[in-house]
Design a protein around this nucleic acid. Structure first.
Length: 452
RNA sequence: GCCGCUAUCGUCUAGGGGACUAGGACGCCGGAUUCUCAGUCCGGAAACCGGGGUUCGAAUCCCCGUAGCGGUACCA
């Protein structure tokens, strides 16, 4: 099998899914996966673009058995195959330009493919002879047989005037010579396939089996692009998604199990994946479901792995302090991005959120916080259960609902009205910091009172 | 224009002639969990593109239409 992206920039989600399906199929069947870079278009094929693809593959943890192979570096092999076709008469040189072809079509009707005339002119492009009669049938693993009338295809160009070959020719030659037996690629290649089949036949090669995956669209039903949010693998990474969750989600986009299983480890994906089971219709990328899936994976991670992932995402050492922070945040975050706002109070001073302050700091809040600080002073050990036991009596003493006590404490120590569980948060912060922040809040409240 | 693909809840899908008063998941709405948010649990609303056939019977098969998408480059 092969994954053969063209290096046009960051690897898109559609490309990532194609890579994943190839990888799953190869691992499922014990096949080998070749990574081939389709870089015959020199202008777009920069080393940075190639590196982006490799980077995305590595992050997704999709490995390959051969390559990366540069298609451009196989130019000699392409030249040999081209010579063979010229020799046999299956291909010929034609001086016609794009304009000439257009004119020819205007004359012969839109339903007829262009047929050229051999020319000795230097710089003439090489075209493949396409028969007028009959049809070329693609035996697609997903769609079944798809027939294309030969007459609707031009004698298409397989090599430029300078001898460099074009995509549909290079792909056919490479797939055959690399021993690719199963080509899994996007649906946008379906109508290219007859051309490749024609090249293969002219060369006397046995064609591989093809499977064309339905395309991926954005939430608006249009083809996926940058304006659809996280549309590339690197954007997914930056948004704080886990590779395993992305693999699971992407696998489900266009493929499903017959028993409604949604959450699957990569091992299970490999075990159950069949290319033939892939659906036929285009799917829309829905980030909300990815978020949910990601949250499931995040919560199921062992704490050490979780701490390491968070550390890598934040660019922090996965030390004991971060580990403690992760422990209280793990059940609440759906993405790696959501962790920091929950734990930042453990690393920095409380954030300044006037809205939160105004909302919970009223009436007897000052007295409540003062009493809380006093109660906390004697709590031993300074752990969640003991903290709760120490604070609970205040509820009766002041005759208030839990929210009236805990929300001011939360805002006092984190600055925000949203945080992990209050007892866990205080324990993680430590007695000293907790008391400091409580006292600062009491002070701030009393100053406010004098002013008002 | 021409060639081709596709069409089940808002989204991802199950379904391959009777098991369908169409199942699951995300999202949404309501309730519970008497510290926020999140999570979790429970409940709910929500779909077979339209029209013809075939058949005793069609979401499932065929045809037409419509819509969306892809291809139609000396791009990949």
């Amino acid at each position: 099998m092969r994954f053969a992206p063209s290096p046009t920039g960051a690897l898109h989600i559609g490309g990532a899914r194609t890579a994943l399906y190839n990888w799953l199929a190869a691992r499922h069947d014990g096949g080998a996966l070749v990574l081939r870079i389709e870089d015959t278009d020199r202008e777009r094929s920069t080393t940075e673009n190639v590196e982006q693809i490799l980077d995305a593959m590595r992050w997704l943890e999709l490995d390959w058995d051969e390559g990366p192979i540069s298609q451009a570096e196989r130019a000699e092999r392409h030249a040999v195959a081209l010579g063979q076709l010229l020799e046999s008469g299956a291909a010929y040189r034609d001086a016609a330009t794009a304009k000439d072809v257009e004119a020819w079509k205007a004359e012969h009707g839109a339903g007829r493919g262009y047929r050229g005339t051999p020319s000795e002119e230097p710089g003439a492009a090489v075209r493949l002879r396409v028969p007028d009669a009959g049809e070329t049938v693609v035996e697609d693993l997903i769609r079944g047989p798809v027939a294309f009338p030969n007459v609707s295809y031009d004698d298409f160009v397989i090599a430029r005037g300078d001898g460099s070959v074009l995509y549909n020719f290079a792909v056919a030659v490479d797939d055959a010579e690399m021993g690719i037996t199963e080509v899994v690629r996007g649906d946008d290649h379906l109508s290219n396939t007859p051309k490749q089949l024609l090249v293969l036949a002219a060369l006397g090669h046995q064609p591989p089996r093809y499977a064309h995956l339905p395309l991926l669209h954005g939430p608006d039903g249009k083809k996926l692009s940058k304006r659809h949010g996280a549309a590339s693998v690197q954007e997914l990474r930056d948004s704080g998604y886990l590779p395993a969750a992305v693999r699971n989600y992407l696998a489900l986009l266009g493929w499903g199990t017959d028993d409604d299983t949604t959450l699957m480890s990569t091992e299970e994906l490999v075990r159950r994946f069949e290319v033939a089971d892939v659906g036929k219709s285009a799917a829309i990328f829905d980030e909300r479901k990815l978020r949910w899936l990601n949250g499931r994976f995040m919560r199921e991670m062992p704490l050490d792995a979780y701490t390491e992932a968070v550390g890598r995402h934040l660019g922090r050492e996965p030390d004991e302090q971060l580990r403690v922070a992760c422990e209280i945040a793990q059940e609440k975050a759906q993405t790696l991005d959501e962790v920091w706002p929950l734990i930042r109070f453990l690393f920095e001073a409380p954030v300044d959120d006037p809205k939160a302050w105004a909302k919970v700091m009223k009436g007897d809040s000052g007295a409540l916080l003062q009493a809380a600080a006093e109660a906390l002073e004697g709590v031993e050990p300074f752990a969640p259960a003991q903290i709760e036991t120490g604070l609970a009596p205040l509820l009766d003493r002041f005759d208030v609902k839990p929210g009236r006590l805990y929300q001011p404490i939360r805002v006092a120590i984190t600055g925000s009205s949203v945080s992990p569980g209050i007892f866990e948060s205080l324990a993680a912060l430590g007695r000293e910091q907790t008391l400091d922040r409580l006292k600062m809040a009491v002070e701030r409240l009393s100053i406010g009172k004098t002013d008002g």
